[in-house]
């Protein structure tokens, strides 16, 4: 593991977030590693219950009360933000440097506050700007996300779903954060609105050099923005790949199956489904967590596969790629020890 300074904006290393429930600990995020280069979008792709939303919570340290275990390293511009105190994190990181567009924009806006005031709220909180300056900035962001200026003085319920989502995006951009975390930003929206929002995000990436983490289950939509794709399964990242290679030929059997399950508008491909169900995160299986549903499983799969680095820079956590890989990273379990040694 190379911990030298990199140009990556965000590096997540062995991030773990377990929740305590009555019957044990839910290992929602269990040793996740991925990088987000500057001015790129990394898509976290996964099905419901794979831990992708918990990953967002873990990165932004928006933790519920029943946290059982929370560890790992998150480097933002080479600074380990996991080492910051909660107070510092709240003041300097959350929303100032990493902003978030939550899953349900409809419910994330305060119904009794004008949306303009809400958008200005994050910059007013640190007290550097006057109310007037903040509102001017909010107006500028509204303009950028394509919301008419008079919407500043409206309430959330007066806005359509697409407009609300734009407002939520404006709110995330107001502090000029280094990166924005988008949690299923379009899943509740209509196709046309969805495409509009994706266009908007694309423009921000191109023109404003914004960096995004996009958490989604929708593969077709994810391809609209992705530079890199990280596939999550049962609390772990099983494949990290650049978008081009991923959408043409995914490596991990789960990624393949997932891609095969997408119904296509064109072409002759018949979609197929993945039989079985993902394992319980209370007691994930030892060995490869996908093995039970994997069509290509063999005897090695009863051991947990390490992450194999492929020659083209892709990473895959599957024994099938042991032979054609250039190197292997040790299992997340032993990674802490190695780090201690170095």
């Amino acid at each position: 593991m190379n911990n030298n300074e990199t140009t990556d904006l965000l590096r997540v290393r062995d991030l773990k977030l377990h929740f305590r429930v009555k019957s044990g600990a839910v290992q929602a995020v269990d040793g996740v590693n991925f990088d987000l280069p500057k001015n790129q979008a990394t898509v976290i792709l996964g099905e419901s219950g794979c831990g992708k939303s918990s990953l967002a919570k873990a990165i932004l340290r928006l933790l519920p009360k029943n946290v059982d275990h929370y560890s790992g390293e998150v480097f933002l511009n080479n600074q380990d933000i996991m080492k910051l105190s909660d107070e510092q994190f709240r003041k300097d990181i959350r929303w100032q440097r990493i902003a978030m567009v939550p899953q349900a924009a409809l419910n994330s806006l305060n119904p009794v506050m004008r949306v303009g005031d809400q958008v200005a709220e994050p910059i007013l909180l640190d007290g550097k700007l006057t109310k007037k300056e903040a509102m001017e900035l909010a107006l500028e962001k509204f303009d950028q996300v394509g919301v008419p200026a008079d919407f500043l003085y409206r309430y959330a319920f007066e806005l359509s779903g697409g407009m609300r989502q734009r407002v939520a995006i404006a709110m995330s951009l107001i502090t000029e954060p280094e990166m924005v975390l988008l949690d299923e930003p379009t899943s509740a929206l209509d196709v046309l609105t969805q495409a509009n929002i994706m266009n908007l995000l694309k423009r921000f990436k191109a023109e404003k050099k914004a960096s995004f983490i996009l958490i989604t289950h929708d593969i077709a939509t994810s391809s609209e923005l992705a530079d890199n794709v990280a596939v999550m399964y049962a609390g772990q990242v099983v494949e990290v790949s650049d978008a081009h290679n991923f959408f043409t030929e995914p490596l991990h059997p789960y990624s393949k199956a997932l891609m095969d399950s997408v119904p296509r508008l064109y072409g002759e491909m018949q979609p197929d489904f993945i039989s079985g169900q993902p394992p319980s995160l209370l007691k994930p299986p030892t060995g490869c967590r996908f093995a039970d549903r994997c069509p290509a499983r063999f005897e090695r799969c009863s051991d947990e596969p390490p992450v194999f680095n492929m020659s083209d820079g892709r990473k895959v956590k599957c024994w099938l790629h042991e032979s054609d890989s250039v190197s292997a990273e040790s299992n997340p379990d032993t990674w802490e020890e190695m780090y201690a040694k170095s």
Binding site: V191, L192, M198, A220, E224, L225, F247, T248, R264, L265
Partner: peptide, 25 residues
């Protein structure tokens, strides 16, 4: 046409181009 334009198949090329979506709601 707009509906079809908006709902594409997964493809890395999607990220490179903007979609032509009718304005408004």
């Amino acid at each position: 046409q707009a509906l079809l334009e908006a709902s594409g198949d997964p493809d890395a090329k999607n990220a490179l181009e903007y979609k032509e979506i009718p304005p408004g709601e």
